[in-house]
Amino acid sequence: MSEPIVSTKTNIAVWLTLLVLTGVTAGVAFVDLGPLNTIVALVIATFKALLVVLIFMHVKYTSEKLVKVVVISAVFFLLLLLGLSLADYTTRLLM
């Protein structure tokens, strides 16, 4: 399969979504959601990152499975680093 050519319409739609979500992130930060504020900000950021990786970086369209393996394992090891480190530091009794 040859490389994907993404339509201008899709690119513009992704671009607009990213801009709107940037506004939403900034706006929602001023609303008091308690500890949910951080979670909402990170969920929106992750959704934006997914859009960029899948559409702008063509991962959704690629026929090369090895690229997908690399992307998924990179994210997996990142989560391993963050998850295990935070599991340690956030559960220490003495600070």
């Binding site: 992130t25 930060a29 504020n37 990170l42 934006k48 990152a49 960029v52 970086m57």
Partner: peptide, 24 residues
């Protein structure tokens, strides 16, 4: 282009994490 988008994604995380910790 892949490099540029990656740098963009880093900023997508940096913005809420650094600027929006507690604006309530």
């Amino acid at each position: 282009g892949l490099y540029w988008h990656f740098v963009d994604i880093v900023w997508i995380y940096l913005f809420p994490l650094l600027y929006l910790i507690d604006r309530k």
